[in-house]
Design a protein around this nucleic acid. Sequence first.
DNA 1: AATCATATGTCAAACGTTTGCTATATTTTT
DNA 2: AAAAATATAGCAAACGTTTGACATATGATT
Lengths: 326, 326
Amino acid sequence: MVAKLTDVAELAGVSATTVSRVINHKGYLSSNTIEKVNASMRELNYQPNNIARSLQGKSTHLVGLIFPTLDSIFFAELTNLLERELFAHGYKTIICNSQGDPKKERDYLQMLGANQVEGIISSSHNLNHADYARASAPIIGFDRYFAPNIPIVSSDNFSGGQLAARELLKHPIHDLVMLTGNDDPASPTHRRVEGFKDILAHKNIQPRIISLAQSTTPTLKLGAIKALLRQTPPEGIFCSDDMTALMVMNVARGLGISIPGDLYLVGYDGVSFIRDYIPQLTTIQQPLPDLAKLSVSLLERRIKDPSEQLSDHYELPVKVISGESC
Amino acid sequence: MVAKLTDVAELAGVSATTVSRVINHKGYLSSNTIEKVNASMRELNYQPNNIARSLQGKSTHLVGLIFPTLDSIFFAELTNLLERELFAHGYKTIICNSQGDPKKERDYLQMLGANQVEGIISSSHNLNHADYARASAPIIGFDRYFAPNIPIVSSDNFSGGQLAARELLKHPIHDLVMLTGNDDPASPTHRRVEGFKDILAHKNIQPRIISLAQSTTPTLKLGAIKALLRQTPPEGIFCSDDMTALMVMNVARGLGISIPGDLYLVGYDGVSFIRDYIPQLTTIQQPLPDLAKLSVSLLERRIKDPSEQLSDHYELPVKVISGESC
DNA sequence: AATCATATGTCAAACGTTTGCTATATTTTT
DNA sequence: AAAAATATAGCAAACGTTTGACATATGATT
């Protein structure tokens, strides 16, 4: 059996209280006692039981991350950064990938409560606001509105859309398409569409907005892109994420459409994978590390003081990463 | 304050035991009592406290995943699949990305113990075997040897190396390079090198093995690949992962080396991202979903019966995904 | 009418910690 | 030399749940 506090106490010839005090550096302890206890802990290879500690009142230092999937490089990198940041702040990360399944998401939300997580960062899209409003732990919405008083962290999506438009308009073109993944007008990411349209409106250009539901499989997406490029190829495309842009590049190459030249292309996200492996893509970069840091720091503030009033929305600036595609 | 079991009991006018019995479907309960209790739980929005439950003896249903990073698409997809599988088996997933930092990994290993996780799946490379042998929970090594009696789950790396060699040898070439990420001869992934060499040896071909340490940054890797392709370009390259192969494709394109033709290229992993977004790459596909399922099912067997004797090594077959690069 | 099985529910101990209170010994201040 | 402050450590209750042992009521079987 694994050693417990009382075993250590017995071996060291002191009370359980004293051992606990040594572990938690609390109260007055003689160096002699401390040494004895430490030796006993070493001898028994003692590991405090966090479960018991939490029950007693200590916090769990657990944080839940609710995202749709890790198959998307964007969420993978984000999760990676959040995990790092959370670890640096002393939290452990439970991942909850809803895979677009509302039932799974609800189960997870409930489970996180049952497991006494101290906070939640979520970007999932399946549940209604009431589900989130009821959650016991503080929540930060990543690129996502949940309920009043649940702060949103996002890139400046509107500016991002504007930047993309400006990039495309550097060329003398006007038949433009935007491929977007999310058509919920309440979603912060929808602001990308608005920013894009905003700039084009000044030039009296009306882009075609093609919305591929977030649940679209790659194959379906491929079909849609092929159809677009074959039947009514535009002169410029703005994709609301880099993976879609990458697919456009592939399809274009297959069809003999050259980028740039025949077609100009701008993506969105600018994750490090794209910068390292697909540098030819021009894209709008979100400051992912900063977004992760901000999310964690806001969450921590809410954990420390649940009543602290935070802003509704934190927007971080984006920038253009110039490749060759536009 | 959030409702607890005793609050429910009080409201329903029964004892705590009875409430617990209702929750756990244990013992004889009148349907009347059950209804009363359920109503009270609903009214108070009661959520059982898993911490208290675990302390009492119930298991935590927590599993830890120790991997180097999520920035690599391979680990991201693997983590995604494992999380799904674990969820389906009733487990929650704590992610522990060591980021190549032995200290972080040791901290995590210790933390997982303290948090009473029921099992660990790990593919991290930083700790010595003793650290893992000491862990309290059962462990499955993914593509990684840790200690005797810790089973390894991997693809058939040797056959994978052989397949890659055979693919390249379909063309009349003999100046071959293998770019590998891990040069630890004890690692299961090193078998890819051996399988590759094995086939080539029959043809009296001695490939150049270039090992880019796993910690290499993309920039350094890019430099190495550029140097290779510029100075002593081979006729064929086998990369031990798809991301490196993707980088080779990019560099080659930049240098005007055409793939296939001037250079034949085979990758390894065949994650779904590659199949969906870089279909032109010929690669050796690991059966990732099966590997995830197998890992979880082995782990569960060990959890249910820690003394169950498992094999040392479970190897799942790989297959060639034919693109245009070879 | 005594016995047994079946329902229904309560008591209190236990899980492994932490902590407020208390007790004693030692040192410092008056 | 008394009072006060400081140092040291133990007792027992508490955290929220589960569960074995026990108590009682009801009905069925002898």
